[in-house]
Design a protein around this nucleic acid. Structure first.
Lengths: 218, 218
DNA sequence: GTGGACGAGACGAACGGTCGTATGTTCCCA
DNA sequence: TGGGAACATACGACCGTTCGTCTCGTCCAC
């Protein structure tokens, strides 16, 4: 109950102000002096709570990625069938990216501001996350439920769709969060279950990968 | 044929080096001294060709957006039916974002580095671009060809899918450009034409927008 | 009880460095 | 020989980070 920012609360206030400013202006543009001003302290005092600007960014990014993974795992746990699992995954993905839009936006746009070792750690978490989607697609394809022309590319598409919700979502927007999530899970499930193909060579699955000269990237 | 960077070619070399460095390290992190070194001149000499760092960024961003719009218009011109128009649009979108990945990536990630007036100009071009997709969806919905639960959200999804191709595409990757474009156009068309709905309230179209308290954003 | 040591945390000045930009001069080709 | 373009240098601003100092509550020895 002191006049000062209540001791232990200061660290959280710094994190919160940093998320806000990194989201609005980017990591490189945001100044430690701006963060300090938002918290209500002097710039030097920040170093009582953080070791460096870049490690502050890392703690934000790794924190949100770990939360994202844990949330997805919890959302998938009740479901076993591919269709229900994919619906749950897409809706969880969309909702997380809407509810924690600022953190997630920072996490997706500031990867290159991290030192190589810390960037690798965050990328590894992201890869684990994408792998969970890809496995659902492959399970559904094996079960004959989904038409998966290329699991990797479709995973990118599904993830990208939800990820960018963080760039435009506003809490008091035209649609509720559940409505947005439903639009996207419906669209994804329709796309994967439609028997009619629009690929130029007939059914895409089986035509690819082409016989020779396969490469590793993409 | 001089030893010097060939006079008029210097401006183009600056632009090219800037795209490269902005793509790799971001606009704020990239230094005019780095650009000058990549071109092979001194930093002060840059100002014989550019008025300022930020206007260099703007010329890159507005240039690529104008090219994107013109390319899409050309790709749509031969087609009249919604299905063919949407397929052409998605494939054009994906191919452009792969072939000019660095420029469009810069264009999509550095908007906030522009001064408000110039940012508005770029955003206006982007809005025109998105509107072209949305109109195709609405035309197809009116013709009874597409199931469009929400044209705005689905446009975001389609555009986001292709846009992020610029983040991972490599020319010598596993799939050809045409294959990547086909995977995505097939997925989009399947999603919009599938009669079976996976929305929780049955057919989504018609249930939304909800009767009252509509808002403008999102 | 009380006074003094202690530690957490804020302060504010300062640091070395780097940034975008401006300027005056020099060079070289048309 | 005139002018476009590169050069070297400098400027003022601002960056992340460091550091010595000061102000408090808290707790223990007495």
């Amino acid at each position: 109950m002191a006049v000062r920012p209540a001791g232990a609360k200061t660290a959280e206030a710094i994190r919160s102000a940093a998320v806000d400013l990194f989201f609005k202006h980017g990591y490189q543009t945001t100044t430690l002096r701006e963060i300090a001003a938002a918290v209500g302290i002097q710039v030097g005092s920040l170093y009582n709570h953080i070791p460096s600007k870049e490690k502050l960014l890392y703690s934000i990014m790794s924190g949100v990625m770990e939360d994202l993974l844990a949330t997805l795992e919890a959302a998938l746990a009740p479901h076993t069938r591919p269709i229900e699992r994919l619906r749950a995954a897409v809706e969880c993905h969309v909702m997380f990216h809407a509810e924690r839009a600022r953190e997630v936006f920072v996490g997706n746009s500031e990867l290159r501001s991290l030192e190589p070792r810390r960037r690798k750690a965050v990328v590894a978490l992201r890869d684990r996350y994408e792998a969970m989607f890809r496995e659902i697609l492959e399970d559904g394809a094996r079960a004959g439920l989904f038409h998966v022309s290329d699991a990797k590319l479709l995973t990118y598409a599904i993830v990208a769709t939800g990820t960018q919700v963080s760039a435009w979502y506003r809490p008091r927007g035209r649609l509720t969060l559940q409505q947005i999530a439903s639009v996207y899970s419906d669209f994804v499930l329709r796309g994967l279950t439609n028997k009619k193909s629009y690929a130029p060579f007939g059914e895409v699955l089986g035509t690819w990968p082409l016989p020779t000269n396969a490469r590793s990237s993409a």
